[in-house]
Amino acid sequence: MSDDRPEQAGATQPQESSPGGTVPAPLAQLVAEHHAAVYRYAYRLCGSAADAEDVTQQAFLIAHEKLDQVRDADRAGHWLLVVARNVFLKMRRRRVPMPAGGLEIDINSVPDRTSVESAGQDDVDAIDTERLQAAIDELPDEFRVPVLMFYFEEASYRDIAEQLDLPPGTVMSRLSRAKSHLRNRLLAGGRPTPRRIDNGHDTTRLDPTAAKRQFKSS
């Protein structure tokens, strides 16, 4: 896995017209090919469309500044994801860390594949995208970033450890705890994470911050 220094991809290129003016053709091509993937990653990290757009924009502005360093167009997509992640982490640097005592490695979270298949559920449609984002939002950043690096950047746990400067064992633990949480929340056959019920209302289902408070109190 590479760091956020891009490979070189073509420096002097013709300009291309865009609605707001003129941008270099390679940059316009990067936007066309990768903006959706960068936005998806940013949205999953941030949990809000506005922040995701900011992160996406910042990532492409950095790409703009470093465009003359981009040589390998095949790796540009991955490089943009790393840039987006770094922009997100920079945004969150001053945030107070959140305890995550309620996140545990849970063997019962792994769904029984045969029962799901026999029920005839469609793999993707079975997971509601809003519930998915709510479950991600419940994860503290220390867990959210590694697990999204795993799924979006296709990073191995050793890559993640290197990139985030963490011991590999810590990354293994965080990946498994984060995945257990997502499986419990989302996948058929997984045991639901215990929810706190306030005044007869399931607060964690309605309000992700309530789930964070639940982790804090456990």
């Binding site: 999953r44 996406t56 492409f60 997971i127 998915l132 799924y151 995945k179 997502l182 499986r183 989302l186």
Partner: peptide, 25 residues
């Protein structure tokens, strides 16, 4: 299943044009 669900979303319409405008600006 989780990976597929994570990627199963579309960016807002017009995002690419908006990005190009801001980059040009």
């Amino acid at each position: 299943r989780l990976e597929a669900a994570l990627h199963a979303m579309q960016p807002p319409a017009g995002l690419a044009d908006c990005l190009l405008s801001r980059l040009a600006a």
